[in-house]
Simulated assay, not measured.
Amino acid sequence: MTTYFFGFLFYLAAVLLGAALATSVVEEKQNRIVELIASSVPLRSLLVGKIVGSTLLALAQMALFCLVGIGGLVATGEQDFLADISSGLGWFLVFYVVGIAVLACLFAAAGALATRSEDIQSTTTPVNAITALVFIVGVTVSGNVREILSFIPLTSTVTMPARVLAGETAWWEPAAALGLSIAAAVLIVGASSRVYRRALLQTDRKLSFRQAMKLTD
């Protein structure tokens, strides 16, 4: 149940965040606003601002969900259960921030690939598929498979906090999984930022991730 709870919250936040972020990027591109912004602000800085803003918004939303849940447990006299889940919930929020930041960068890059609002669905399909796969796999696996996935970036967002909550982890395992997630995030954000910078000012046609990587800055 807790795995499903963590997975559903992560999936819901990622989908809502992704749709809004990709739409804002393509609207700026379609209206040529981004050309004015790019003349005074480096595109890398623009992307960083979008990632930070989106991640903080998603964190605020998740914090609100958690506060409502905690308030419900306190109101119903389930303080003992609250104490039991506090460690898993804390780790979930940490992994959640890293995972959302990665997905925010991917969705921004996907939005930059589009030239019209109608293109968003096709350009964001790979990222949506990754998000759905993380949710489905995270909530269905168990045993040794869940243990392995708890160290793999993105899937660890769901599976590692659930393992912590179940008392299945040694003290070092969440920290190691978080380190792997941060390392992967650096690589993914670096690649996605190149796609974002190279595709954002291309207004003549819709691009794929592969085509954008072949362009020059």
Rank of each mutant, 00 (worst) to 15 (best):
G88A: 07
G90A: 04
M62H: 05
V141C: 02
C66G: 15
F81K: 15
G77L: 11
A109I: 06
R116N: 08
V139G: 04
Q121Y: 14
G88V: 02
I70G: 08
A132V: 05
F92E: 07
P126A: 02
G72H: 15
S54H: 10
E78C: 12
A104P: 07
G71F: 09
T131S: 06
D80W: 15
V74F: 14
G138V: 00
I100G: 03
V139Y: 09
T140G: 04
I85M: 06
F135P: 00
Y96C: 14
V137W: 10
Q121W: 15
L67I: 05
C105T: 12
R146Y: 09
L89P: 06
L133S: 07
L67K: 07
V68N: 10
A132D: 06
V94T: 09
N144D: 14
C105W: 09
S54N: 06
F135T: 02
M62S: 08
L89R: 07
T125S: 09
S86F: 04
T124P: 00
F107Y: 12
L64E: 14
V137Q: 06
Q79F: 15
G99E: 12
Y96D: 14
S87P: 13
L64R: 11
L93I: 12
L73Y: 13
T55P: 04
L56D: 09
V102F: 11
T123D: 00
L133N: 04
I136W: 10
C105F: 09
A129S: 10
L64A: 15
F92D: 08
W91D: 00
G88P: 05
V134H: 06
A108N: 07
F81W: 11
L82S: 12
D80K: 15
V127C: 08
V94Y: 08
Y96N: 13
G69E: 08
S86G: 11
Q61G: 13
G99N: 13
G111F: 03
V74M: 15
A58V: 05
L67T: 08
L59N: 10
Y96A: 14
A101P: 08
V94W: 09
Q79I: 15
S86P: 07
